[in-house]
Deep mutational scan, measured.
Amino acid sequence: MTTFKLIINGKTLKGEITIEAVDAAEKEKIFKQYANDNGIDGEWTYDDATKTFTVTE
Rank of each mutant, 00 (worst) to 15 (best):
N36I: 14
A35L: 15
T12Y: 13
L13M: 12
N38E: 04
T3E: 05
K27T: 15
L13I: 13
I19C: 15
T12C: 15
E16C: 15
T54K: 03
A49M: 08
K27S: 15
K5E: 04
K14C: 15
T50F: 02
E28Y: 14
E57S: 10
A35M: 15
N36F: 14
T2Q: 08
I40F: 11
G39E: 04
L6K: 00
T45C: 08
G15C: 15
F4V: 06
L13R: 04
M1K: 12
V55R: 07
E28N: 05
E28I: 14
V22F: 12
D48W: 07
Y34Q: 00
L6A: 02
V22E: 09
T2W: 15
T2F: 15
Y34W: 15
K27P: 15
E26Y: 09
K27Q: 15
E16D: 04
I30D: 03
T3Y: 12
V55K: 04
V55A: 03
A24K: 09
A35G: 03
L13P: 02
A49D: 08
T3R: 10
V55S: 02
G10L: 15
K14H: 12
N38P: 03
I7W: 04
L13F: 15
T45D: 05
G10M: 14
G42S: 02
E26Q: 07
I17N: 00
E20L: 14
E26S: 10
D23L: 06
I40S: 02
K11R: 12
N9G: 04
K51M: 08
K51D: 06
A25T: 09
M1Y: 13
D23V: 06
E20P: 07
D48S: 06
T3S: 10
N38F: 14
F31M: 10
I30V: 08
F4S: 02
D41Q: 12
V22L: 10
L6T: 00
K11N: 09
F53E: 01
A21C: 15
A25H: 08
D23H: 07
V55D: 02
K29I: 10
A21E: 04
D23S: 09
E16I: 14
T52C: 07
M1G: 07
D47A: 02
I40A: 02
V55W: 13
T50V: 02
F53P: 01
N9F: 13
D37G: 04
K5C: 13
F31A: 08
V22R: 10
D48C: 06
E16R: 09
Y46V: 01
M1Q: 06
A25D: 10
T18E: 06
F4C: 14
N9M: 11
G15T: 14
K14T: 12
L6N: 00
F31P: 01
T56L: 07
D37Y: 09
A24D: 14
K29D: 08
N38Q: 10
T52D: 00
F31Q: 01
T18H: 09
F31H: 00
F4H: 04
E28A: 09
A49N: 08
I19E: 02
A21L: 14
K14F: 13
T18D: 03
T12L: 12
K29Y: 12
A49G: 04
A49R: 07
T12W: 11
E20H: 12
A25Y: 08
T52F: 04
V22Y: 11
N36Q: 13
A35E: 01
M1W: 11
A21V: 14
K5P: 02
K14I: 14
I17H: 03
E16Y: 13
K11A: 09
